[in-house]
Amino acid sequence: MKTLSPLPLATPEAPAELRALQTWFAQAVTLPASTDKAQAAARLSDQYLTASQTMSPRERLDVYVSDYWSRCMDSLAEDFPGLLHLLGGKLAFQGYLEKYLMAYPSRTYTLYHLGEKLHEFMLQNYREPNRDMVLDDIAYEWARVWALIAPTSTPFDPAPFSPAQQSKLAEIPLTFQPSVTLLELGCDVRPLRLAKENPALPPPQKTALIVYRQNHNVCNMLIDPSFLTLLKMLQSGKTLSEASPLTAALLTPKQSAKLLKQVSNWFQTAVSEGWLSQPVF
């Protein structure tokens, strides 16, 4: 490649007229058409755009408006098909999601992150009777997207551990792969996203679920609620020796005895399913 001339140290300053045009265009395209601001922006079409032989400036602008909204809605519907059912179909889904995108415009260059703040938004704004199920569903469906795009850390591998290190495993903090999400749900929302239309609603039932990535695929597993409690304690930085008695203390004596017997099996599951990262001694 040819030698280039020396580079400026900072990004060049954008021409003022470019900045003004982009501010206008972004408002006109990304604000829902029903808002005053979007309508005010659209009224300026004639100032910024020329007509073609077949279309007015406003009609030409609308190509970008509808493209933006259909792209965002298609992407969100693909990531949250269960939510689409729960909100009562496409129209209602679009109504909520328009408000969501206004409050939380896309901040990254991929559409994968578009639903990142949806749980937060609906927690603040959704008050319908099926609120708990809606929030559970969003948590689950976002966990699936996240499992797809989360970074990877070095997987847990006991092979290089010395016997002394092996014996200390219960005494050091264990970290999870970034793709892992631990979910405590009021019902099993998983079938919702698989339904074609008008799915039967899942009955209320405490559901402990882990969503994670394994061999480049998104996986989930129903787990014992006590196991979830234990994993949450590990996730908060407790060691296995600290977390086990703390979890047991939350249970009846009989359950607690059972739990302490199962801890080592659970630990094996966590390792074999690839939920843990390599610990640092």
């Binding site: 060049p12 954008a14 021409p15 007229e17 470019l18 045009l21 982009q22 501010t23 265009f25 972004a26 395209v29 990304t30 970008y64 493209d67 933006y68 792209r71 965002c72 992407s75 415009p105 896309s106 901040r107 990254t108 260059y109 559409l111």
Partner: peptide, 23 residues
């Protein structure tokens, strides 16, 4: 495709001026 940190996920055209081209 991006303005003030918000992404529009589209390939949006530019105004064609020498100043913008140089920028």
């Amino acid at each position: 495709s991006q303005h003030k940190g918000a992404h529009m996920h589209n390939l949006l055209p530019l105004p064609y001026t020498p100043k913008v081209a140089d920028y």
